[in-house]
Design a protein around this nucleic acid. Structure first.
Lengths: 189, 189
DNA sequence: TCTGACTACTCAAATTTATGAGTACCATGC
DNA sequence: GCATGGTACTCATAAATTTGAGTAGTCAGA
């Protein structure tokens, strides 16, 4: 029951449709959680029937109508309760790390390719998060925004996402460098 | 079918029993994946019946007997195939980030407590990974080990785990500092 | 000697997440 | 004028992960 709270958290900051939510959770803009559209629509239905959110139909002439959801008082209370409860530790669970764990027993050429691709992906995310942060803080410095801004929750989670992707990028690049060195050293031997 | 490969990767480096594997995957020593004992025993059974690993009974007089597993040639080939396939991007999925995302709408006292606890957890992990790395590289410097050591896969994944927990620690500490500042600023107002 | 903790596993069920396949309508470019 | 891609959703199923409850013997400390 954690997606439930991820959706609530997203809707607390902004009134969104299922589709908008799905985009955010899919592309990783909402970098505090990940979910597919099907899951989100299902969760929205459950949340609404539990009275934690309410939806309102927005009629559009050029596009299909949509339903925008916002959190009810009961929803805020549920979020409060969730926040007070113990937090499970989070673990890395990444196919790429599994592949690197086996690096000494497989062809490193393929592995280097995967690492290079991931580094590029991470760089793109670093850029994305960087500009998101800039948008959120506007003209202020980060320090100023965090002290005096009104909404800092999304800023803080975005900072975490940024650090995560920076580390991904650096680690991938370093791993590629090492594996390449070892390849050429072995080739010379 | 990713746990499958995580188990293979772990067993490629070391012959292990289900119980040992479970410990590694539970405490996060195997920081490239996480899984519960039940899942691992089930996966070991499947892997063995698929011929990707073989187990041998080890009789112990003081403790229950155990079965040690190692990867077969077919298992190594499967790992090779897996490594060459495209890697799915990995996402953060963390209850704590969900809570911070909602920081502007809930009582921050509870949130600060959760962040403080997580920071302590992260510090413990940083220490653990630090000593694991030290054990793996022995007397060598990291640079030397990564260039000339024999087994660097587990070292690289442990480095990733270390960086992840350092970032967790720093981010939690910074978030706590900011939330505290804002609390006292609000109290004065 | 009793309690709690550790080794070494197993079985069953619930919950969560991912995959695959659609519907339907509008706008844009070739 | 037709294919491609975006908006806005839904249904069904499969796979992965978590939760809960056991078994059974050993060892160390109060």
């Amino acid at each position: 029951m954690a997606l439930r709270h991820a959706v609530l958290a997203a809707l607390l900051n902004e009134e969104l449709s299922g589709y908008q939510l799905a985009k955010a959770f899919d592309t990783g803009v909402a970098n505090f959680w990940h979910a597919l559209p099907q899951q989100l629509y299902a969760e929205l239905t459950r949340l609404e029937s539990d009275g934690l959110i309410t939806g309102r139909e927005v009629v559009q002439d050029t596009r299909p109508n949509k339903r925008l959801f916002r959190v009810t008082d009961a929803g805020t209370a549920e979020m409060e309760r969730f926040t007070a409860a113990a937090t499970k530790p989070s673990f890395i669970r990444d196919d790429l790390l599994v592949k690197v764990q086996a690096a000494d027993h497989v062809d490193t050429g393929e592995l280097i390719a995967q690492l290079t691709e991931r580094a590029a992906f991470a760089r793109a995310k670093v850029e994305l998060f960087g500009s998101l942060l800039h948008t959120m803080r506007g003209d202020r410095t980060e320090e100023d925004h965090l002290r005096h801004g009104e909404r800092i929750g999304p800023y803080l989670t975005c900072l975490r996402g940024l650090a995560f992707e920076q580390e991904n990028r650096d680690w991938c690049e370093r791993s590629v460098a090492i594996l390449n060195e070892r390849r050429s050293a072995r080739a010379r031997a």
